[in-house]
Simulated scan of single mutants.
Amino acid sequence: MKKFIYIVSFLFSTMLFAQNQNLFEEGNTLYNEGKYAEAIDKYTAILETGNHSAGLYYNLANAHYKLNHIAPSIYYYEKAILLNPDDTDIENNIAFAKNMTIDAIDVIPEVGLSKIVKNTTNTLSFDSWAKLTVALVFCFVILFLVYYFAYSTLVKRFTFVSSLVSLFLVCVALAFAFHKYNLDKKDNPAIVFVQESKVMSNPNLRSDEAFRLHEGTKVQVIDAYDDWKKIKLSDGKTGWIISDDIKLLKEF
């Protein structure tokens, strides 16, 4: 019975993959013909099957960009870059899309040690830092074993010092791994999806208006209460926005 279920699942997955591949190619053809709305329908149909990829989001963003859909184009470019952060084409296109936004929000620059630590932490993903830590632990163990069983004084000195250096690097890599994990956990970006949204000082419509945001603006969600989300801008401003006015980027 289990074997039969595995076979059915495999056949279903194969059929779904073939179907999505056909939809993707049809979407690309429509896009090349200038039929951007129809291309969006094809790409969206793939998303509805639970298939997600940087290429799919990139093409979907391009189609929205051609139709001057500010929020959706930025939203899908941002999702594409989450899955493929090193793609320069995505970075270039998202820069063009952001030129369509209204809000000009300054970025508070980080300086000193905090900037160095953050930049170093972001050079690798959490998984990469974890793998580096494991590799360094392996090096430490090998060097320590060589030190323990070596007869030569010179070899003992070299492996002893090297093992201490490896152990130190293990601690450093582990610290960066945990720091990266915490940064990723706090990172909860979203895109404003309405033409204009009032950001309030408290999570209710009776409170004072703090400021207004327009479609396509990227914010950080730092808290939630009922139908409200507390957001923070890159210039440090905070406020409460109606949940339906934004779409979270990390929801796949």
Score class of each variant (00 low, 15 high):
residue 236 G to D: 05
residue 133 T to V: 04
residue 178 F to A: 10
residue 186 K to M: 12
residue 46 I to N: 00
residue 55 G to N: 03
residue 55 G to E: 02
residue 103 D to I: 13
residue 115 K to Y: 04
residue 46 I to L: 00
residue 12 F to D: 01
residue 156 K to R: 15
residue 118 K to F: 07
residue 127 D to S: 07
residue 163 S to I: 02
residue 247 K to V: 07
residue 71 A to T: 01
residue 130 A to Q: 13
residue 216 G to Q: 08
residue 215 E to M: 01
residue 212 R to P: 06
residue 32 N to I: 10
residue 214 H to Q: 07
residue 219 V to C: 11
residue 42 K to Y: 00
residue 205 L to R: 08
residue 198 K to E: 10
residue 74 I to H: 00
residue 187 D to W: 14
residue 203 P to T: 05
residue 13 S to A: 15
residue 190 A to Q: 02
residue 59 N to A: 05
residue 62 N to S: 11
residue 119 N to S: 14
residue 47 L to E: 01
residue 22 N to R: 11
residue 178 F to H: 09
residue 85 P to N: 13
residue 42 K to G: 01
residue 168 F to Y: 12
residue 23 L to C: 03
residue 58 Y to Q: 10
residue 71 A to Y: 01
residue 52 H to V: 15
residue 248 L to W: 06
residue 165 V to K: 05
residue 43 Y to F: 08
residue 60 L to G: 08
residue 111 V to S: 13
residue 123 T to A: 10
residue 7 I to D: 03
residue 204 N to W: 07
residue 12 F to A: 06
residue 7 I to E: 06
residue 181 Y to I: 05
residue 120 T to A: 09
residue 167 L to E: 05
residue 61 A to M: 05
residue 63 A to N: 01
residue 208 D to R: 07
residue 99 N to I: 14
residue 171 C to N: 12
residue 26 E to S: 08
residue 54 A to I: 02
residue 67 L to G: 04
residue 60 L to P: 04
residue 75 Y to S: 04
residue 133 T to W: 04
residue 154 L to R: 09
residue 120 T to K: 07
residue 195 Q to S: 11
residue 237 K to W: 04
residue 193 F to E: 11
residue 248 L to K: 11
residue 176 F to N: 02
residue 5 I to M: 07
residue 249 L to F: 09
residue 117 V to T: 14
residue 157 R to E: 09
residue 109 P to F: 10
residue 54 A to W: 05
residue 136 L to S: 06
residue 142 I to W: 02
residue 119 N to G: 08
residue 84 N to G: 03
residue 169 L to R: 01
residue 100 M to R: 14
residue 211 F to G: 05
residue 93 N to Q: 12
residue 56 L to C: 09
residue 241 I to L: 02
residue 42 K to N: 01
residue 169 L to F: 12
residue 73 S to F: 00
residue 105 I to H: 07
residue 68 N to S: 14
residue 230 K to M: 14
residue 137 V to D: 07
residue 211 F to C: 06
residue 27 G to P: 01
residue 248 L to Q: 14
residue 118 K to S: 15
residue 179 H to I: 13
residue 86 D to R: 07
residue 239 G to D: 10
residue 99 N to G: 15
residue 210 A to H: 03
residue 144 F to I: 02
residue 170 V to C: 15
residue 77 Y to L: 03
residue 28 N to Y: 03
residue 8 V to S: 12
residue 106 D to W: 08
residue 198 K to T: 13
residue 144 F to D: 06
residue 151 Y to W: 11
residue 23 L to P: 00
residue 223 D to Q: 08
residue 77 Y to A: 06
residue 95 A to H: 12
residue 170 V to T: 15
residue 173 A to N: 08
residue 138 F to A: 07
residue 110 E to Q: 14
residue 175 A to T: 15
residue 5 I to A: 08
residue 150 A to E: 02
residue 44 T to Q: 04
residue 165 V to E: 03
residue 218 K to V: 11
residue 30 L to M: 00
residue 226 D to K: 12
residue 106 D to N: 10
residue 71 A to D: 00
residue 16 L to M: 08
residue 146 V to D: 02
residue 8 V to G: 06
residue 183 L to S: 14
residue 252 F to G: 05
